[in-house]
Amino acid sequence: MPSYKKHVLFSIIMALPFFPDVFYLSLAVLGASMLDMDHDVNRKNLTIMALIGMVIALALYILNLPFLIGLILVVLAMVFYVSKHRGFMHSILGICLISGFMAVFVMGSRLVLQDFTVPLKLALIFISLVLAFIILNRKLLPVFAVLVSLGIFLTPNYLLNSMNICYVFSAVLLGCLSHVILDMSTPAGVRILSPISSRKYRKKAAFGLFSLWVVVVFIFFVNGGWGSVLQVL
């Protein structure tokens, strides 16, 4: 099984061509680290996630703000809790679900903090650190906190102001996908088509997905990056 360090490094490698900004790279790292929350050793983290989600939901409900933001964490914790390791949450459908929920949570949290006139950089640092506290290995957490806080602080405002749900979803998805590719490279393999199929995919599929990523990176740069993508959308 790849270590959390390998997952973190590979998530950065896969996200960097699309997102050279620290905030999005941090989301990729969080996405890559999140998938293993379906492991029995991470039950404590799931409890923390559910509790934080309930506190956020209650606070927002009292303030007459969108409390569904907090419930997203509760739902994610429940889904991870009932999932088997390297099961549904490691599948294509699973990582899309995770990425979608995370994108809504991040964008929703940003808007709520904006209502309280919290500066954008401070809001993004706060969101990153809350998610890191829930998700990341405790050995990695201090380094992540320092580097991400410093990186977001030094990022030009115009880059952060261009933030949208498409970027956030894509960054988390790339992190999740990097995790799946590494896990498929092991003998145990991954059921990437669960629940449609229980077949396990291994090294050949991992190589295929990584090759597809290389092709997408090439097309992305040839066609002018995110500007052309957003025009299509």
Rank of each mutant, 00 (worst) to 15 (best):
L160S: 09
R191P: 00
L113T: 08
L122K: 15
L129M: 13
N137H: 13
I134E: 12
V172C: 12
S185R: 11
A145L: 08
I134C: 05
L113K: 06
M163P: 01
R138N: 06
G189A: 04
G175T: 15
T186A: 09
V143H: 02
G151V: 04
T117E: 14
R110D: 13
S178H: 09
C176I: 10
F133K: 10
P142V: 04
F169A: 08
L124I: 09
S162I: 02
T117F: 12
L140K: 09
Y158K: 07
C176K: 03
V146G: 12
K121H: 02
L120E: 14
L93E: 14
L147Q: 07
S149Q: 01
V146R: 12
A132Y: 01
F126D: 06
V190E: 05
L122Y: 13
M102W: 04
V106R: 00
V130F: 14
P142F: 05
A171K: 09
M107Y: 02
R191S: 11
L136I: 01
L131C: 08
I152L: 10
S178M: 10
L182S: 05
V146A: 15
T186G: 08
M107I: 08
G151R: 01
G94S: 10
F169I: 09
S162G: 10
V172K: 07
I152E: 08
I98T: 10
L182D: 06
S162C: 10
L131A: 08
P119E: 13
V104A: 04
L177T: 07
C96R: 15
S185V: 07
V148G: 06
L140G: 08
V146Y: 08
F144V: 03
A103C: 01
V130C: 14
F144K: 03
F105N: 00
F116K: 02
K121C: 05
G108W: 03
L113H: 11
V112Q: 07
G108M: 02
D183W: 04
Y158G: 02
I95D: 01
S149E: 03
L93V: 13
L120S: 09
T155P: 11
K139L: 13
A188D: 03
G100Q: 15
G94R: 09
V172S: 03
V190N: 06
V190M: 12
K121G: 03
V168L: 00
A188W: 01
L154Y: 08
L120Y: 03
I98E: 11
N157F: 11
I152H: 05
V148Q: 10
I125T: 11
V168Y: 00
L174N: 14
R191N: 00
G189D: 02
S178F: 15
G94Y: 12
G189R: 02
F169W: 10
N164P: 00
L141G: 11
V130A: 12
A188N: 05
F144I: 04
V180Y: 04
M184I: 01
I134T: 02
I125M: 13
S185E: 06
F153H: 14
M102E: 14
M184Q: 00
L124P: 12
M184H: 01
F126A: 07
F153R: 07
Y167C: 04
L93N: 15
L122T: 05
G100V: 12
L174P: 15
S170P: 06
P156Q: 06
L154Q: 04
I165R: 07
L154K: 05
M163Q: 05
L111D: 12
R191Q: 11
R138C: 04
L173D: 14
V146L: 15
